[in-house]
C-alpha cells in the first residue's frame, strides 16, 4: 500500500511538472510566422479545390480556372507570359566594324564592290542602331557578251537597326534581325559593239556616256555574331533587298548599285569583323573574359594537400 501511494504521488508530481513546463512553452510569442497566419488563412480561403477545376479560355486568351462546385473563376496566373526584364543597361556598348565580304569576293572573281565600315550603338544588348558607310566600284567585261561596264568609286550610306534575339544571354553570341535603308549617288558608263543583225553589214558602236544616278533601297537581314577574342567579334549576314527608288536615264538601268550589289541580286551576304567598346564603365568580370564554352568550372583551384606519409608519433 505504501508503495502504491508512493507511485501515485510520483505520478501526480510528474504530471504537475510536465504541465508547468508546457505552460511555459506555449506562452504567446509574436513572430513573423504568427503575423502572417491570417494571410495564410485568407490564401487558403482563396485556394481552389483542384479536384473540381476545369479550364476555359477567355476572349483575351487567358486561361480561366473554374471551380465547378462553387462557381468561382480565377485567372491562371502561371499561364500569363512574363516579360523578362532587361539584363543589360541602356548604354551598353558601341562597335565599329569592317565588312570584308566584297574584298574577299573580288579576290575570287567578283567584278564589283570595295569595302564597308559600320558603327553601332548597343542599347540593352537588344536594340542596336546601325550606320554603315562604304565605297563601291564596278568594272566588268563579261565573257561572251558585248560590253564593258564601268562604275567609278562612289560612296554609299545605310542606316537601320538590329534586334538581338539573345538580348538577355551572354553578349558573346548575338543572333540578330535587322532592317536598313541605303542610298548611293553614283555614275556608270557602257561601251559596247552591237550584236544586232548583220544584215545591213554595219558594225555599230554603242556608247552610253556617264550617267548620274541616285538609288535608294531597303534591306532586311539576319545576322550572327560571335566573340572570338577580347572585344573582337566576327559576324555573318544574309540580306534580302529591293530597290525603292532610282533616277531614270534614257539608256537603261545601272547594273551595279554601290552597297546594293548587282540589280538582279535580291540576296547578298556580309562577313564582318567588329571591335566592341564597353560603355558601362566597369571592367568585365574575370569569368567573362574566357572564350565561350571555356569558362572554368571552379573559380578557385582547391588547395593541394601534402600527400606524403606523416610519421605518427
Amino acid at each position: 500500500m505504501r508503495i502504491l501511494k508512493a507511485i501515485i504521488a510520483a505520478a501526480v508530481i510528474a504530471m504537475l511538472s510536465f504541465t508547468a513546463t508546457g505552460q511555459r512553452r506555449i506562452t504567446p510569442v509574436e513572430n513573423p510566422a504568427t503575423r502572417t497566419q491570417h494571410i495564410s488563412k485568407k490564401l487558403r480561403a482563396d485556394t481552389l479545390d483542384r479536384t473540381n477545376i476545369v479550364e476555359k479560355t477567355d476572349s483575351r486568351g487567358n486561361i480561366i480556372l473554374v471551380d465547378t462546385v462553387t462557381g468561382k473563376e480565377v485567372v491562371d496566373s502561371t499561364k500569363i507570359p512574363v516579360v523578362p526584364p532587361m539584363k543589360y543597361p541602356l548604354v551598353y556598348s558601341a562597335s565599329i566594324g569592317v565588312n570584308v565580304w566584297d574584298p574577299i569576293m573580288r579576290a575570287i572573281g567578283q567584278k564589283y564592290g570595295l569595302v564597308e565600315f559600320s558603327g553601332e550603338f548597343n542599347m540593352h544588348n537588344r536594340y542596336i542602331p546601325v550606320f554603315e558607310f562604304g565605297l563601291g566600284q564596278a568594272d566588268n567585261t563579261p565573257d561572251g557578251n558585248n560590253y564593258h561596264y564601268r562604275s567609278p568609286i562612289a560612296p554609299y550610306f545605310r542606316i537601320g537597326m538590329n534586334y538581338n534575339f539573345l538580348y538577355n544571354s551572354s553578349p558573346d553570341y548575338m543572333a540578330m534581325a535587322g532592317i536598313r535603308y541605303g542610298f548611293s549617288p553614283f555614275s556608270y558608263s557602257v561601251e559596247a559593239t552591237s550584236t544586232g543583225s548583220s544584215y545591213w553589214g554595219e558594225s555599230d558602236v554603242i556608247s552610253i556616256p556617264s550617267q548620274h544616278v541616285t538609288a535608294g533601297y531597303f534591306a532586311i537581314l539576319f545576322n550572327l555574331r560571335v566573340r572570338i577574342a577580347g572585344p573582337v567579334y566576327v559576324g555573318w549576314a544574309f540580306s534580302y533587298h529591293s530597290i525603292l527608288h532610282e533616277s531614270k536615264t534614257p539608256h537603261g538601268n545601272p547594273w551595279y548599285i554601290p552597297g546594293y550589289g548587282t540589280r538582279t541580286s535580291a540576296i547578298s551576304g556580309a562577313f564582318s569583323v567588329t571591335y566592341t567598346l564597353d560603355l558601362t564603365g566597369r571592367q568585365r568580370k574575370k569569368k567573362e573574359t574566357h572564350l565561350p564554352g571555356t569558362e572554368p568550372i571552379m573559380n578557385e583551384v582547391p588547395q593541394i594537400y601534402n600527400t606524403e606519409e606523416t610519421e605518427i608519433k
Binding site: 566588268n140 563579261p142 557578251n145 558585248n146 560590253y147 561596264y149 557602257v190 559596247a192 552591237s194 550584236t195 544586232g196 555599230d204 554603242i206 556608247s207 552610253i208 534614257p250 539608256h251 537603261g252 538601268n253 545601272p254 547594273w255 548587282t262 540589280r263 538582279t264
Partner: peptide, 14 residues
C-alpha cells in the same frame, strides 16, 4: 535610236 543597257546578261544594244 538610243543606246541602251538592257541587263548584264542581255548586254547593250540600240
Amino acid at each position: 535610236s538610243t543606246a541602251y543597257f538592257a541587263s548584264a546578261d542581255c548586254g547593250a544594244m540600240f
